[in-house]
């Protein structure tokens, strides 16, 4: 079988990208190698760790278990797509404040999982925060601080939204 390439159009962090990829190209490799967005991490490549978590149409998914061709026309948000106007996303701020990482390699995936949660559920319970990151391993063992960051992020997210609403209203 030849190496036939498909042209795939993806909207990544709001920008349209036309990629020529083999069907076997995962979204993860497409992001990291074809678009050089290396914030999304490759760890297990088998859906067993969560480091490659991105939002596809707003839902957290493992980009290592998605074919790029299967994402034709879909909107993908990666860690590089968070934050507005040079400001960190509230979840990112919360991670720094709570020291919710050590080596930082799982961090983009953790942040994206929580972003997916807070977009759908702005006032989650502690249990919902925990469940949102059950699919993200952290080998350094920062879990307790990640939960803490999730709690802080709920507050920061609300404040940031209020500020944006004021701007919009103004």
């Amino acid at each position: 079988m030849g190496r036939h390439r498909h042209t795939v159009t993806l909207t990544i962090n709001g920008e349209t990208h036309d990629l020529a990829v083999e069907p076997r190209r995962t979204l993860l490799d497409a992001l990291r190698d074809d678009v050089s967005l290396t914030g999304t991490k490759k760890v297990c490549d088998m859906g067993n760790c969560g480091a490659c978590t991105v939002l596809v149409e707003g839902q957290a998914m493992y980009s290592c278990l998605l074919l790029a061709v299967d994402c034709q026309g879909l909107s993908v948000t990666t860690i590089e797509g968070l934050g507005h106007d040079g400001q960190l996303d509230p979840i990112q701020r919360a991670f720094i404040e709570a020291d919710a990482f050590q080596c930082g390699f799982c961090t983009p995936g953790q942040v994206m999982s929580l972003r997916g949660l807070l977009d759908a559920t702005p006032s989650p319970s502690d249990e919902q925060i925990e469940r949102a990151v059950t699919g993200n391993l952290c080998r350094c063992g920062a879990y307790l601080h990640i939960i803490d960051a999730g709690r802080r992020a709920v507050v920061l997210d609300r404040e940031a939204k209020e500020v944006r609403d004021v701007h919009v209203a103004g």
Partner: peptide, 27 residues
Amino acid sequence: RTRLEGVEKVTGSAQYAYDVRLAGQLY
């Protein structure tokens, strides 16, 4: 004190060995 490299790590801009992308790079 929070980590000096915090912003890099939470934004995905921290460059790990795996993230080096050089012109003509092979895998």
